[in-house]
């Protein structure tokens, strides 16, 4: 495995970390308006309260790592997805503001406004993440210099939109399971009733997306055809999803959440395995695709970055784990809560 491949994996890990962690808090946002009482909504907010901004750091660091390791891909993707990306950022910022400001004033209209902001920001954020991923699977038109030659509207084709809806569904399922873990009493009962429709919604959209991928994007499943053992990943994904209702109805919310996390990790792994070694596939002109060699920084930079990641990532994992440990258990509203 050369340095380029190592960095493909490391950046995959960063973005997977982002999907698993920000995934549940985007999902909580998407479900937020389903809770009707003010106190319940505060519990929802505070379930992600101590961790949501730390979760977003995974995206920022993933972006930074992409910049350093594969600057061509970083430049191509973010300038190519310009308007979509700024809408995504606007949604994230608006969502952050909503979380931060909602409970600061007692007025009904104030809280209602930010509740809607939180929900919409989360929905749009999740949707656009999926749309971006869908476009990467589908391929985007690039010229010989690796510059995106399409328009904003070209990014919104049905396959990408389906990927967007799937990612919203995935995050809603993930968020509901997280909330089930963090709540108790009547609210927990209510949240438990959300989980089944969320799972059904996700399984439906995901099946459709898989079908569409098999039919229309043969390139994206070539690794599966070439190396049949990779079907183990698919089987594991299905098992992880199937395990969720088993754990929920066996009243083991922690294990249900771990299953949901495993689902996202496996989906990202499947995505990565099928993409490798391409970072940004060009469509229709496949020759212009950016792969981990064409898009990469020098070997020296990749080596230096590996040292940085080798020092930094164990520390990050250690204190991220300890923070989740400190804030384990049910949400308790105190005077420092949102």
């Amino acid at each position: 495995m050369d340095l380029n491949a190592v960095w493909f994996v490391l950046i995959g890990i960063l973005f997977t970390g982002y999907a698993v962690l920000d995934g549940f808090d985007l999902g909580v946002g998407a479900l937020h308006l389903l809770a009707r009482r003010d106190k319940d909504r505060r519990v929802l907010l505070n379930a992600i309260g101590p961790v949501w901004d730390g979760n977003e750091v995974w995206l920022v660091t993933g972006g930074g790592a992409l910049f350093a390791a594969f600057p061509e891909a970083y430049a191509t993707v973010f300038s190519g997805f310009y308007i979509a990306f700024f809408l995504f950022l606007a949604a994230l910022v608006f969502r952050a503001v909503s979380i931060e400001f909602r409970s600061k004033l007692p007025w009904r209209w104030w809280r209602a406004t930010w509740d809607v902001g939180f929900c919409l920001g989360s929905l749009i954020g999740g949707l656009l993440l999926g749309v971006a991923l869908g476009n990467i699977v589908w391929g985007i038109p690039l010229n010989a210099e690796g510059v995106y030659t399409g328009r904003f509207i070209d990014l919104l084709h049905p396959y990408a939109l389906l990927a967007g809806v799937t990612s919203v569904a995935l995050f809603m399922m993930h968020g509901a399971i997280y909330l089930h873990l963090k709540t108790e009493g009547a609210l927990q009962e209510q949240i438990r009733s959300w989980i089944r429709p969320c799972i059904i919604f996700f399984v439906l959209t995901y099946s459709l997306l898989s079908l569409a991928t098999l039919l229309y994007v043969p390139r994206a499943t070539s690794a599966l055809r070439g190396q049949p053992w990779l079907f183990a990943v698919v089987v594991l994904t299905v098992l992880a999803i199937a395990n969720i209702p088993r754990e929920i109805f066996g009243d083991r919310p922690g294990r249900a959440f771990l299953s949901s996390c495993a689902t996202i990790v496996l989906l990202m792994a499947l995505f990565g395995l099928n993409m490798y070694p391409v970072l940004v596939p060009s469509e229709p002109n496949v020759a212009h695709s950016l792969d981990i060699y064409r898009a990469a920084s020098s070997q020296q930079t990749l080596g230096i970055m590996l040292i940085i990641a080798g020092i930094g990532m164990p520390l990050v994992l250690a204190y991220t784990a300890s923070i989740y440990w400190i804030f384990r258990g049910k949400v308790r509203l105190t005077e420092t809560s949102y």
Partner: peptide, 27 residues
């Protein structure tokens, strides 16, 4: 990117995680 990107990525790995993570405990 080869030069500037590493400093930016180092900021993410060394600084942002540290600050945002421990801020949860502080707050």
């Amino acid at each position: 990117g080869d030069v500037f990107g590493s400093a930016l990525a180092a900021e993410g790995i060394f600084a942002f995680f540290l600050e945002s993570g421990f801020l949860a405990i502080v707050l």
